[in-house]
Design a binder for these strands. Structure first.
Length: 574
RNA sequence: GCGCCCGUAGCUCAGUUGGAUAGAGUGUUGGUUUCCGAAACCAAAGGUCGCAGGUUCGAAUCCUGCCGGGCGCACCA
């Protein structure tokens, strides 16, 4: 089912078409002047340009065509040619009843279930996960949930950095220490990796050994491979702990190494097709296009030493995904700084015939995380902050807040821990997701674990309050009704509840979860005002009471749905 | 040097793709609880939308030029 704005758009669109004007001009949206009207259509002003007529005359003609539609309670022309529209309470009420009765709450499903692969998380082997992985993980996970709800078969792939030079560096250092082949722990790995990176940077001979080790590993050397396999296992365990705590899900635990076998055939094919050429000792594929404003460096497939670059593995990963998943879209949730790289890879993929033109490859990039000083985020000690430290800080603060509240007294330890966990994750996720994906953003630990104002916990609080209210109502034998009765104090919440399908569509189309954050917050806020203004359980008019309970229930369902799409879980109480 | 992104209230951010009086949170000030959960609600103050031009009925939004910040430009990932 469509949203109210869409239904009204159909009506006004037809009115424009009847005047031989483009249907698109009939676009109706929620008014940005709620004091004047509920909905507005601006098409008459755009039409006046093409028809060379007075916009108010056009608006007048459209308005006359709309008169026969009984959905409207008020149709007015304002200013230069705005068409202001109000709908009848009957119409609003019946629309609400429909969406309340719909298990998808009015959000339409795509016609055909197609596959989307989402690439996010991207943790590296042997390195602890830090706050930099947070954005990719939670934005990616949210986008996966959004695509899934839209009706796609959405596949999330963690795509670990488990290949290439860093692996060679670790192996060469282990060898130098004489401990290659012995089991290592995560703590040891975390010590070895930076030590190895430092040694290679300072010592050219060590770097040369690292290069050799990289090539040998990639050529399938048994000893190296066994050691490598072992530290993959150890690292993955550590990653899973973090992802589980965050509630970030992956369908595939693939890494760069998984496509190694596909590289040689892919490269050969690109060679025989004439796309891959030699340049300065390396094998490259040129990705320049006509109309390029900037220099576009070629994508390097093979380095002059025969080694593989990450662009090559990315390309081979596309080969694999096309074969195994046959997706219509592949979405990369990776730092915006990689945009040139993805431009190169995508162009190479299309040019080399690895993906057909009608398959969408998108880099859904996100901004750099800065500290409150505007510079790339560092802890006070100057290091990176570990993800697990951030999570435990959030949980501690949630526990402290819970201890303050009287309500926590009667809860057992297990429930209290569960609530603290959910509150902390809601705080962290919402603080991040509410920012526009593309812009750099300031990572402020206090803001991220704050529980007041526009925060995740505020949303949980409203949801929990509704739950509690509905429980109480049930205890008194009151049930949410099937019909809506709209008084002045109910109407703005009711109108807001009809916007969900449009908001969802925007978030899906632009890969922007922050639109859902914005909506969830408006909903919670609108509900809170409504809740303060009307006392529901003591309402004596039964029809009004059950209508209001129905509004509560629908609000509740929408908050659950939207927070679910953001990857935020709601406790029973808090 | 070339290119990409950003610049909106003291601070952190929205702004539905060109619409009416630019909105939230936070912080500041004041108010609200014999009543469904005060992690709340109501209200006030706070703006040359970086600057200057241009396009038009109409610009935070589109175009041009500056200023300021961030990032990226072939053998790292």
């Amino acid at each position: 089912m469509a949203s109210i704005a869409e239904k009204l758009t159909d009506i006004t669109g037809a009115a424009f078409a009847a005047l031989d004007l483009p249907v698109e001009l009939g676009q109706v949206r929620v008014s940005d002047r709620p004091d004047l009207a509920q909905f507005q259509c601006n098409g008459a002003m755009a039409a006046s340009k093409m028809a060379k007529k007075n916009p108010r005359e056009i608006a007048q003609a459209v308005v006359e065509a709309l008169q026969s539609h009984k959905e409207f309670s008020k149709i007015e022309i304002a200013g230069p040619g705005f068409i202001n529209l109000n709908i009848t309470d009957d119409y609003l009420a019946s629309h609400l009843a429909q969406s309340a009765g719909d298990e998808r709450l009015g959000v339409e499903k795509i016609a055909k279930q197609e596959t989307i692969v989402l690439d996010y998380g991207g943790p590296n082997i042997a390195k602890p996960m830090h706050v930099g992985h947070l954005r990719s993980s939670i934005i990616g996970d949210s986008l996966r949930r959004i695509c899934d709800f839209a009706g796609y078969s959405a596949i999330g792939d963690v795509h670990m950095g488990d290949w290439g030079r860093p692996m060679g560096m670790i192996l060469s250092v282990l060898e130098a220490r004489g401990t290659l082949g012995e089991p290592v722990t995560m703590d040891q790995l975390e010590e070895i990796y930076p030590a190895a990176a430092k040694a290679c940077k300072e010592d050219e001979a060590q770097m040369e050994k690292a290069r050799e080790a990289t090539v040998k590993l990639q050529d399938g050397d048994e000893t190296y491979k066994a050691a490598w396999k072992q530290f993959i296992d150890v690292s993955v365990k550590g990653m899973k702990k973090n992802f589980d705590a965050l509630g970030v899900h992956f369908d595939l635990w693939k890494g760069e190494a998984d496509v190694h076998e596909l590289i040689a055939p892919m490269v050969n094919k690109l060679k025989t097709n004439g796309f891959a050429v030699e340049s300065e000792g390396a094998l490259v594929i040129s990705v320049e296009q006509e109309g390029d404003k900037k220099e576009m460096p070629p994508l390097i497939l093979l380095k002059s030493d025969g080694g593989v670059m990450y662009g090559t593995t990315d390309l081979a990963t596309i080969v694999e995904r096309m074969e195994e998943n046959n997706p219509v879209k592949i979405i990369y949730v990776v730092d915006q700084r990689q945009s040139l790289h993805f431009e190169q890879v995508f162009r190479a993929a299309y040019k080399g015939g690895i993906v057909p033109e009608n398959i969408e490859l998108t880099h859904a990039g996100f901004g750099t995380m800065n500290g409150p000083d505007g510079k790339p985020f560092k802890t006070r000690a100057g290091g990176v902050m570990r993800l697990e430290d951030l999570i435990s800080m959030g949980i501690e603060k949630a526990q402290a807040r819970l201890a303050e509240a009287d309500l926590a007294r009667d809860m057992d330890k297990g429930e209290r821990a569960d609530i603290a966990q959910k509150v902390a994750i809601a705080a962290i996720k919402f603080a991040d997701l509410q920012n526009n994906r593309i812009a750099d953003y300031v990572f402020d630990i206090d803001r991220m674990t704050s529980f007041e104002g526009k925060t995740g916990p505020y949303l949980l609080y409203q949801a929990v309050r509704i739950k509690s209210l509905l429980r109480k109502a049930e205890g008194q034998g009151f049930k949410p009704g099937k019909e809506f009765l709209l008084r002045d104090s109910d109407r703005s919440l009711a109108l807001l509840l009809t916007e969900l399908p449009n908001v969802f569509e925007g978030a899906l189309k632009n890969y922007t979860p922050h639109l859902l954050c914005e909506y969830a917050y408006r909903l919670a806020q609108e509900f809170s005002s409504f809740y303060a203004a009307c006392h529901i359980l003591s309402e004596e008019d039964e029809a009004l009471r059950s209508s209001r309970l129905a509004l509560c229930e629908l609000t509740q369902s929408q908050i659950v749905l939207v927070l679910g799409l953001l990857g935020i879980k709601i406790p029973e109480r808090m």
